[in-house]
Design a protein around this nucleic acid. Sequence first.
DNA 1: CTATTTCGTCATGCCGATTTACAAATTAGT
DNA 2: ACTAATTTGTAAATCGGCATGACGAAATAG
Lengths: 402, 402
Amino acid sequence: MTAPLHEARPAGPGRALPDTQQGMRRRNLARVLHAVRAEGPLSRAAVASRIGLTRAAVSTLVDELIRSGLLEELGPERPGRVGRPGFALALSGRGPAGIGAEVGVDHLAVCAVDLRGTTRSRAIRQGANRGRSPGPVLAELTELIRRVVAEAEGEGLWPAGLAVAVPGLVARDARTVVRAPNLDWHDTDLSDFLPADLPLTVDNEANFGALAELWLGEGTPRDFLHVSAEIGIGAAVVVDGGLLRGTRGFAGELGHVPVQPDGPECACGGRGCLEQYAGEEAVLRAAGLEPDEDRVGLLAGRAAEGDEDVRRALREAGTALGVALTGAVNLLDPESVVLGGELSGLAPWLLPSLREELARRTAGPACPVSVSRLGPQGPLLGAAHSVVRAVLDDPATVAERA
Amino acid sequence: MTAPLHEARPAGPGRALPDTQQGMRRRNLARVLHAVRAEGPLSRAAVASRIGLTRAAVSTLVDELIRSGLLEELGPERPGRVGRPGFALALSGRGPAGIGAEVGVDHLAVCAVDLRGTTRSRAIRQGANRGRSPGPVLAELTELIRRVVAEAEGEGLWPAGLAVAVPGLVARDARTVVRAPNLDWHDTDLSDFLPADLPLTVDNEANFGALAELWLGEGTPRDFLHVSAEIGIGAAVVVDGGLLRGTRGFAGELGHVPVQPDGPECACGGRGCLEQYAGEEAVLRAAGLEPDEDRVGLLAGRAAEGDEDVRRALREAGTALGVALTGAVNLLDPESVVLGGELSGLAPWLLPSLREELARRTAGPACPVSVSRLGPQGPLLGAAHSVVRAVLDDPATVAERA
DNA sequence: CTATTTCGTCATGCCGATTTACAAATTAGT
DNA sequence: ACTAATTTGTAAATCGGCATGACGAAATAG
């Protein structure tokens, strides 16, 4: 009763499932896996002390996980310590694999990640998808998926699920793309176009990018704001190690936060939205450039060359981002803000003015802003890893198939 | 694997506690209590079917809860249905009580709420606290608390905890008031001044107001934004039925969201913060009024009389609120926005322009904005109920004392 | 007045973790 | 080299908690 009484999730009516022994078993299986994942190869005894169960209990859990093909016994440890050495346990490199896919504006990408987090297979196809209808694009994607799955199966893995990152808003059913302006897709149920034999999850590219940052980034906190951008500006809000999705799944629409209430009109009906100042099109226009295919690359190249118009445009975009982020930071009190996705390539020219604006508007120490180490790979990795995490979070569901 | 893979809280490394049978028992005790709370008097069989356990299991759980004084058997049901009638179970009216307290700018209030949610005792003391140091103010509050506790004990209740609502920022330790501008308190650990025999929780008045709305409001969703205001403008973000607190506990600082990036300077260092347009002082100034004690009452009175200056000032404040809320709604995608606390008294004059601004800036249907039925009582009720909820969420912790 | 239905409880069994005990494998000390 | 100490993994017995199935009790339906 000393801790705050109410955290983000009450124990009460939220969890409607009955609490039975099977549930306990399932949760403990997950805890064993997470302990092994988080702290490298571990003996049964080490796992037991980590998660607070007895060695005997862990033994039976480990047996089950080994039978399911989720854990592997590496061999005897060679310790400097006294006592009988244990057998090192590690996540299996031949068990289930997470298949991640990305529909970008000018590329398609697929990869397979094993339980250990290692990328075991990948495929990329360049080519503009802007304005193409979902059918052909997803047929190509399916082709890539089949290739990656086949390669993964060749290495002894089996696909546990497919997660697809798209540059647009996705409904909470995790299937339907409600609006993807860059692709010109609307209300499209992707499950109609993708392999039906794999459990499917579709999500926003920014959300997957944030998850990648959370899971793969070094020292990433459990509460942060992940800002990403293609044409629009997407953000993902991570609260206590999980995504905040919003009622309709549209949370994180940073692009339409008002930055200048009397500014230019926006397609959303508002005025002076962030997108009008820091969106890709706006920045290109402000820099006096024509949109071409690789917009971000173009901007980064010119900025690196010292093009003052481009640099000024990016500075101003950074300032606008700073204003919008001030609002977001005030509202959410995150531990940090991370710039990810395509945006990370422009960070050197955006960051100074962004940080300055944020600091100016903050009493006390400003919220730290950093750049994702993952860069444009974040969404794809996040997608693949989300499948892997789902397995780790509830091994019982996949154990049956193995 | 059909549902979205990752919700706000992963099952994985988040919960560090071992999952043992005792934990299962505790959670099931809570589920019984919540079922009875949510659906009125219920027989053991009805509870069993609600929560998915067997009648036998529920029987033993109920026995334990009755022995602990948390549940009561009301007597035999008189049903129209065939079959032996059950014994109606209800939350005890003579068990633990939640003590809620509120430190307002010009009043102190305390109340006791039983498990059923009924307020069983209350005490209020009017008097300006602005600028008074914490010692004397909290001594007075302690006096009120003692009185309320004594009265509750006279009715067979015993205090399970104390929750105090303050108009300011509270650290995540739920004890320390970091900054309360209206009181001029800074970095004050309230546990130094309050009865040590009661488990203490301190939180922002807006947060408790939001919880009251969540628990006591009719049809309140599990995801909403609760806007409250005294001098500053506080908001509380409710996500999936729980508060979003932020890393430092400062989430919801709507007052310093930039509304006009080039607007007047603010004490926070920024420019054009919402507080400059919709804060109490700003509105009074815009209306051409002098600050006096009952500021909100003054504004409401003048507006009701038809004072055009006041009405205009409130309209403009509503517009500014609309701009700030557009940002918040874009970021969080809540199901609704609720105006609560002192702000609810001014709602008739704020709402039209607020709604208009929000709708103008939103593509598609705008986020609905409503006014809290609880009004200024929200924070106090929320505080008291938070203690009650803590008991309902984990009856095992208090059962020992009973 | 009997058949039927539902409630609450008891005896029994199952499942899962704990406890206790023990053999195996290592290091430390003589 | 040999023993003592320590640690690991597993097996057997125990315990806690829920499920199952059966039963008496108390109501309604006919």
